[in-house]
């Protein structure tokens, strides 16, 4: 069982480059289809880690492994371990629900529930049986997501009446309201315009102080703007299969300016479609 108590925030900031999630995927299957092979990397605490790579190389799949969202997919199977704070989250004794309460997720499409703005943010708090000061926590989460000023007068109205960018910030507020330690974001800006995208990027840079963020993005500039570390994945099409694998993982600056692998270089030059 994950029995992790949230450690004090002050302690965290003192520790540098501590491994929070240690991901060792040997093989990963959807039914008979091998989607991923050889993906070893460590997510460091308090940093923003970006995943880049061509479509279908398995970025979302790897991301969704980190909080066991893939358990919802029929036929999903993984060889390897993913350690979160030293505990293997795929160990049979681990409850995926507990994992997801520590590792939150924001999806590509904004997906607020068909309820009021307030209830959307309070949803996770209710799940965690938080009783005290729910309104305060909701306000705090909305403020940190940069949405409070826009919605403070209509907390009781439906979340579906918000614009796409507002909905996405609401989803971020909903995810951070329960204070997870890690925030997984799967192309969170792909449905947004440049201004909303910038806002969310600024937001991520602020949130970084309290959360570890892992983001999948197709926007290389975005990765360069916000990520501390970047992982490049590519898809191996030999043997008439399509298996994704990790090519290179390094500090963002280094990966973009001095890539060590030929694949990375070609991808950054735009030589792949």
């Amino acid at each position: 069982m994950l029995t992790l108590q949230k450690p004090h925030r002050h302690v965290e900031t003192v520790i540098h480059s501590e491994v929070l999630i240690d991901c060792r995927i040997e093989n990963l299957y959807y039914g008979d289809f091998r989607a991923i092979r050889d993906c070893d990397l460590s997510i460091e605490r308090g940093k923003i880690t970006a995943f880049i790579g061509p479509s279908g190389c398995g970025k979302s799949t790897v991301l969704r492994c980190m909080n066991r969202m893939n358990d919802l997919v029929q036929g999903f199977r993984i060889d390897g371990q993913i350690h979160f704070q030293g505990q293997d989250i795929y160990h049979p004794s681990v409850d995926p629900v507990a994992v997801r309460r520590h590792i939150g997720m924001v999806f590509q499409q904004p997906n607020p529930f068909a309820m009021s703005i307030y209830k959307n943010v309070a949803f996770g708090l209710k799940l965690n049986r938080v009783k005290d000061d729910i309104p305060g926590r909701v306000e705090d989460a909305l403020r940190r997501a940069g949405l409070w000023d826009e919605v403070k007068d209509k907390l009781k109205s439906s979340a579906l009446a918000l614009s796409g960018g507002q909905q996405q910030r609401l989803c971020i507020a909903r995810a951070i309201a329960t204070e997870p330690q890690v925030l997984l974001m799967d192309e969170p800006c792909s449905a947004l315009d440049p201004i909303a995208t910038r806002r969310i990027e600024e937001l991520m840079l602020q949130l970084k102080e309290r959360y570890t963020i892992v983001i999948v993005t197709h926007n290389l500039h975005q990765a360069q703007r916000i990520a501390d570390k970047t992982a490049f994945m590519y898809v191996d099409t030999s043997n008439s299969s399509r298996t994704g694998f990790l090519v290179e993982y390094a500090d963002t600056h280094r990966l973009f300016n001095h890539p060590q692998q030929e694949y990375t270089l070609q991808y950054l030059r735009g030589e792949f479609s």
Binding site: R100, G104, M105, N111
Partner: peptide, 27 residues
Amino acid sequence: VPNQLREAAYGLGATRWQVIPGVVLRT
């Protein structure tokens, strides 16, 4: 009910018996 909504709830750490009444039946 869109799968995205169910995923959103599961992603917040809801159990199946919280997702069904809280999100699926509601929607």
